[in-house]
Amino acid sequence: MPNRSDTRVITPGLLRDWALPVPTGGKEARGTVLVVGGSRFTPGAVLLAGVAALRAGAGVLQLAAAESTAAALSIQVPEALVVGLPETADGAVAGRPGELLDELVTQADVVALGPGLKDIDETGRLLRLVLDAAGPETSLVLDAYALGALSHAPDLLVGSGRPVVLTPNLTEARHLLDRKPGDDLDAEATELARRYDAVVSLYGHIATPDGRSWREESGDAGLGTSGSGDVRAGLLAGLLSRGAEPAQAACWAAFAHAVSGQRLVPRFGRIGFLARELLDEIPHTLATV
């Protein structure tokens, strides 16, 4: 396992030397992001992730969320195609939503699964549906309950060769590791990347299955706010959509997430800004690296 000294610190200089693709042409050249998530009670997670993907440069946005929330989401995010998915009696997205979701997954360049989902069993069914329908080149971002579902099937991605990024918080990392994470998050991210055969972004600690690792050091306490993780997952999906490879997208997303928070500090202080306020800072942060 790499020593902490082997982990590269993410700086503007590092990112400038690892420049993001700049697609030319129409919106199709910047890819299609599909966000699958939400519940009757948490539609905002899908909104935050979807808008973050657009702010990061995705060309086309599609949202698939609980049926009862679809109309409201379509009004709040007029830029997106919004599809309602069947719900359980408790308001969770049902795990057998039918051919329409299959078609959307098949056509997407990036699928972000997890923001706002509830019910681990239904999410597990959704995860398998997405993996079955997605092409081998489709990039996947797994967040929130999708990570819990993955922890119940730890070999699901191993050997698949899929471009996948996992975005756990510490609670989700505990489920994925089947133990409490230690203090060395560089090492924990590396273990997760190897165990699940995917790029991992754990609170700004990024690792790949082949042992490369990076660390973002400018994130502050203000990012620990409701919905912040949804913004990070969508930001990552948007960068993948415009052509970044998974480790590159994870490093850029960690930096842009942290620095967008820093940009809000003069107005709101170190804590007190909202996740939705990060969204408008993303394009400028990316443009001024």
Rank of each mutant, 00 (worst) to 15 (best):
R242C: 05
P266N: 07
A244V: 06
R267Q: 15
G234I: 08
A237G: 14
R263K: 13
G238I: 05
G227V: 01
L278C: 02
S228W: 00
E245S: 08
R263V: 06
L239Y: 02
H284Q: 13
S226A: 15
D230P: 09
S226T: 15
Q248E: 10
V259G: 00
S228R: 01
H257W: 10
R270T: 13
A254S: 15
E281Q: 15
S260R: 04
S228G: 15
P266M: 13
H257N: 07
A233P: 11
F255P: 00
R270Q: 15
G227A: 08
R232H: 15
A258R: 00
S226N: 12
Q262C: 08
A237L: 04
E277H: 13
E245P: 00
R276K: 15
P246E: 07
R263P: 00
G234Q: 05
L240G: 00
S226E: 13
D280I: 06
C251M: 12
H284I: 09
L239G: 01
A247G: 02
V231T: 05
P283E: 09
R276C: 05
Q248K: 14
A258G: 03
V231I: 10
E245R: 14
A258M: 05
L274M: 14
G234V: 08
G272K: 14
E245Q: 12
R263W: 13
P266T: 10
L235Y: 04
I282E: 02
Q262H: 13
H284V: 11
S260Y: 04
L264E: 11
H284A: 13
R267A: 15
L235K: 08
A244I: 04
F273Y: 15
I282W: 01
C251G: 01
A258D: 02
E277N: 12
A233I: 11
E245K: 08
A256E: 01
R267K: 14
A253I: 02
L279K: 11
A256L: 00
E277L: 12
V231W: 02
E281V: 08
R232C: 07
G234S: 12
R267G: 10
S228I: 03
A256K: 03
L240C: 05
L240H: 07
E245A: 11
G238E: 08
C251K: 03
I271P: 00
C251N: 10
P246W: 05
A244T: 10
L264C: 12
R242V: 08
L279P: 06
L278D: 03
Q248V: 06
L278G: 03
C251S: 14
G261C: 09
L264W: 11
L236A: 13
P266I: 03
A250K: 03
G272L: 07
C251R: 03
A244Y: 09
L278W: 04
S228K: 01
R270L: 11
S241W: 05
S228D: 02
G261F: 06
I271M: 14
L235D: 01
R270N: 11
D230Q: 05
A233Q: 12
A256I: 04
A254L: 02
R232D: 00
P283S: 09
A249P: 02
V231F: 07
G269D: 07
F268K: 14
E281L: 09
A275Q: 07
V231Q: 05
E281C: 12
G227E: 01
